Computed example of a mutant assay.
Amino acid sequence: MKWYHLAQRVIGGYACTRSEAQEMLRVADDETLDLVYGAYQLRRHYYGTAMKLNLIINAKSGRCAENCAYCSQSIYAETSIDAYPLVSEDVIVQGARQAYENQIGTYCIVMSGRKASPREVRTVCSAVKKIKKEMPIKICACLGLINGEQAKALKAAGVDRFNHNLNTNASHYDQIATTHHYQDRVATIKAVKNAKISPCSGVICGMGETDADIIDMAYALKELDADSIPINFLNPIPGTKLENMDELNPNRCLKILAVFRFINPTKEIRIAGGREVNLRSSQNLGLYIANSIFIGDYLTTKGQDTTKDYQMIEDLGFSIETKAVETKI
């Protein structure tokens, strides 16, 4: 089986080529399971059957001045979401308690907006210190663009990981956002790494990108050495610029996941937003490739009932990873 043998070569140190990645995206649908099986060899070799769970708190919602085409929180989107300022420290800490009680390995504090204000950074840092004193849970912050000093403050407070997605390929970026640039995102990831915080960066697929764009994104994240790579699949929200975009189906999503696993075999690959609406009844197959998922709701869209996620993991014979281990970089 071709993909099985390629996986064995990758485990032995071989680097997957662009032409091989392109072939993965063009695999016939009736051969998708062969590709999934190959990708599973990598997932099993590096992560066994452990599944990492992540939970989001939408700590600040809406009123974002950026014009990201996919986002319901942008002031340019004609949506009716809940908009509110940064929640209190107590609310953030209570969310962490609930996450820890539900076997969540990483608690993700997410804020809307281009960047956090100094006061908001202080609030997040204070909340993280309280969480770390109380429970052994990994903390990921997603606060928009940050500089080196802010990154150092977050590290000192106990933030383990910082998320800032590339979202799409550099050559496609102007089709998705123009109020900031691709290189702004790269600079934030580098600031995070310089502060010795584990970098988390991923993509949103299904936004009009080409196969070459998807492959370029996978290699860009390899070059940045992101420890965690969330793969979002566009959930087109009414009122956003991409509300009528419909490019994905379960087989396409599985092929995309396989590309990111083969190119970044040792990294945490997370199925993120849009999992339920795009993978649909093939969600369980995605877990043979990815070793991480979000549990519960996303920022402004609903996830599936959490009992279904826990049942899916159990039915696959997988185990939930609960130990909070700080990634060394």
Rank of each mutant, 00 (worst) to 15 (best):
K2L: 10
K2I: 14
Q8N: 15
V10P: 13
A15M: 14
E20F: 10
M24T: 04
E31W: 04
Y37R: 14
L42W: 02
G48C: 03
I56T: 10
Y70F: 15
A77F: 06
E78M: 03
T79C: 11
T79M: 12
E89C: 08
Q94L: 12
R114G: 08
S117M: 11
V121E: 10
A127Y: 03
V128A: 08
E134P: 05
K138V: 04
C142H: 06
K152R: 15
A153F: 00
A153M: 15
A156N: 13
G158L: 09
D160H: 01
T168G: 03
N169S: 15
D174P: 10
H181F: 12
V186P: 06
A195M: 07
P199W: 05
S201W: 07
C205Q: 08
T210M: 04
E223M: 02
D225T: 00
A226G: 05
D227P: 01
D227W: 00
L234C: 02
T240V: 07
T240A: 04
D246S: 13
E247F: 13
N249K: 07
P250D: 13
K255L: 01
F260T: 11
P265M: 05
R270A: 13
N278S: 11
I289S: 11
I293G: 04
M312K: 07
S319I: 03
I320W: 00
T322M: 06
I329A: 09
